[in-house]
């Protein structure tokens, strides 16, 4: 994600501020999520979301844990709509986690 361990770009360390948000680091972050959440063994087990009673509950469980449920209603609706399109609870949980961890809200945490 652009910060190689023990290899800062300058004596001052890694640059802060808005520099963490570039096109390259965006791809690195979301592709890390893709690799983590859908690894070689299949979707990562996320019991709090996979065991939810409905797609809505799965989304809310993830939102509550990752962004303090602090997200625009339209964005929540978008994630819910996507969650409904996936019937397998494990897959659904991993996809919801991907979207929340990749969301603009989460990038600022």
């Amino acid at each position: 994600m652009g910060q190689v361990l023990f290899e800062p770009p300058a004596v001052a360390g890694w640059p802060g501020g808005a520099s963490w948000l570039s096109s390259g680091t965006f791809f690195a972050r979301v592709n890390f999520l893709d690799a983590l959440l859908y690894n070689q063994r299949g979707p990562l087990a996320i019991p709090a979301a996979a065991g939810a009673a409905s797609p809505e509950d799965a989304v809310d469980a993830v939102l509550a844990r990752l962004v303090d449920a602090n997200i625009a209603a339209a964005s929540r609706d978008g994630i819910v709509a996507f969650a409904r399109s996936i019937s397998n609870p494990q897959n659904r949980a991993a996809s919801v986690a991907y979207l929340v961890l990749g969301s603009p809200e989460y990038q600022l945490i």
Partner: peptide, 25 residues
């Protein structure tokens, strides 16, 4: 999934902290 993720960025308010920067990046 990618289309849904992009939508989250489109809908993200430009007036939020780093809002325009996040979306446009």
């Amino acid at each position: 999934r990618t289309a849904t993720l992009m939508k989250l960025y489109e809908q993200y308010p430009a007036s939020s902290p780093y809002g325009a920067l996040l979306e446009t990046t």
